[in-house]
Write a protein that binds this DNA or RNA. Structure first.
Lengths: 342, 342
DNA sequence: CTGAAAGCGCTTACAG
DNA sequence: CTGAAAGCGCTTACAG
């Protein structure tokens, strides 16, 4: 079949008017049929006539025209600080699962660890999104955003007052981690945090520090530092701090993300530090690579796909005008012990 | 400052008509100013009057209305088969770098290893994208797409007839890998390919097999298999095949992607296979985790960020109506030898 | 330099 | 059940 014969071939755009003419009806009727709003409004005869014309011409409702008329598009914007994190790819997969073909997912991402400016998002708002998903936001961002319309926050502990949330119980995993290290005999640890200052990272750190303290592990203030969520950045920071930490008796390093922990593993191996004998290392996220790193990495497992899926479901509800039964949902986390902590 | 006072606060949308009224001009003039097309068409006086009104009201040009009037939006669609691959996150970073704030990047992604249906993309086309980037396409997809408008292909060797391309010289790295394995004394190898059947994977496999053959490494047909680009899928496939491969004298496994190689590493360790003594493993992509896996993974390094950046630049050119100086660009690849091959 | 007006493609009261 | 018409917000010839 020649390309030119096919409905989707290039050439002048097929409009509702063309379909209407072919089917011998008005564009209003075409719109009704194309949107499945025929219930008691279009005759069986016209429905099939229009359907036939649509498939013959390969008509697709124009998203721009439709959005303008409706005042809202079928675009859902996902705002997130770190697309290079494989954890995020899983979140996206979950979101897509919920939104399916009904909505188009538009990603607003920045470089690792940075958060989009509210100005960027306002530009995206000019496309009249049907809804907004914001992953790991900080409150400043939400203050500035002041978005109207359906909004669901992911991984936003403490920010429940802004919008419906889907959170992770990272504190539970953090406490398990502290208990595990205490049980393994550690009494002094260091903590490598993320510089982003998002709530989830504060929660991870605070829950860990509190439980660590309660179980006899000290984490001196000068053994807490922050880096970008980047393997190399964490590696460099660790390399600079390790001699001092070692003198201070640090035997365990906990990182806010697995990505940072990989950097520590890498640098520690280069420095000839034996793991877990001389140093235990652990992270958060339980990325797929944590099972095959050297040593394999102990990590707090966070359910990324369910997080995205649930957020997508909640947003769907809001976009369809349904009252949410449970506006605030929290998903479990748990510790996965591997070779890096013995 | 109260939220309600702020320009971007929720409430009725600010339109060009409101700006026009406030500035005492027509909406035509507002449009000219907002789009920076004032050159010899708007008086200095009106320009500043409109600018003032725009900032006072917090006006942002409505993307939907603007797109409908212009016939094209500022959306760029990136179609890709595998967002869960960290390699892809880097490609995106490169694309974003080129497109900056002028275009909004809309991702059309599917689950790992699957390619979007042309029907999905046609739906996205209803948003009148300014341009299209397609990563690692196969020719069937491009045949079906028959897209009009600016289009650039990434990692699409052999598909130069469809559109401008930015390719990776994966064959060079593949040959280096074969040479390296031959030099290390291997004479029989297995190959784990991707099921997607995209051109880049054929090229990787064919270049490796040819050079391997030329250097005395045999790869029997029953030692070539395909899996999804997924750690677990590759692990399972390897576990099933390894006993037989071992009997056949296989001492090296090459994977089309690092992600699959991680699966082999994992399963081989579980099976007590010593690497690299009993088995050498290598992949393509050189993901960040390949430096810290156990053992660290020998891989063909592919420049992901430059790939995305160059593709974005080329697309920009097309969208702005500039003739491309070099419609087909190829970026280098090279082998990075690590512990998994001794 | 300026504005009135047409038009982009669609959806939705509205009148019949 | 049906269609003519208004309107979504903008841009762009066009006439002045």
């Amino acid at each position: 079949m020649d390309t030119l014969d096919r409905p989707n071939a290039r050439g002048p755009r097929v409009t509702a008017a063309m379909v209407a003419e072919r089917a011998g009806v008005s564009t209003a009727t075409v719109s009704l049929v194309a949107n499945g709003k025929t219930q008691g409004r279009v005759s069986k005869d016209n429905i099939s006539r229009v359907r036939e014309a649509i498939s013959e011409l390969g008509y697709v409702v124009d998203g721009i025209g439709s959005s303008l008329a409706k005042g809202v598009s079928s675009i859902v914007i996902l705002v997130a600080p770190d697309i290079s994190n494989p954890f995020f790819a899983k979140v996206i997969a979950g979101v897509r699962e919920s939104l399916r073909a009904d909505y188009q997912l538009l990603l607003s991402v920045t470089d690792a660890g940075e958060f989009p400016q509210a100005a960027d998002v306002r530009k995206l708002m000019a496309f009249r999104p049907a809804g907004l998903l914001v992953d790991a936001p900080n409150s400043d961002f939400l203050e500035e955003l002041s978005a109207a319309g359906p909004l669901v926050l992911l991984d936003a502990p403490g920010l429940e007052s802004y919008a419906p949330t889907v959170n992770l119980d990272v504190a539970h995993g953090a406490r398990e981690l502290a208990a595990h290290l205490a049980d393994s005999g550690h009494t002094r640890a260091a903590y490598i945090d993320s510089v982003t200052g998002t709530a989830t990272f504060e929660l991870r750190r605070n829950a860990f520090l509190k439980e660590a303290g309660a179980r006899g592990i000290s984490v001196p203030p000068d053994c807490i530092m922050s880096t970008r969520i980047d393997l190399g950045a964490a590696a460099e920071a660790f390399a600079g701090a390790w001699p001092r930490w070692q003198r201070q008796g640090v035997t365990a390093v906990v990182c806010g993300t697995d990505t940072q922990a990989y950097g520590v593993l890498q640098e520690a191996r280069v420095a000839g530090v034996r793991m877990p004998q001389d140093l235990a290392v652990a992270g958060f996220d339980d990325l797929p690579y944590s099972a095959t790193s050297n040593p394999s990495l102990t990590s707090v497992h966070l359910p990324a796909v369910p997080l995205g899926r649930k957020a997508g479901q909640q947003l769907r509800g809001l976009m369809e005008g349904i009252e949410l039964e449970e506006p605030h949902v929290t998903l479990d986390s748990s510790l996965v012990v591997r070779g890096s902590t013995g």
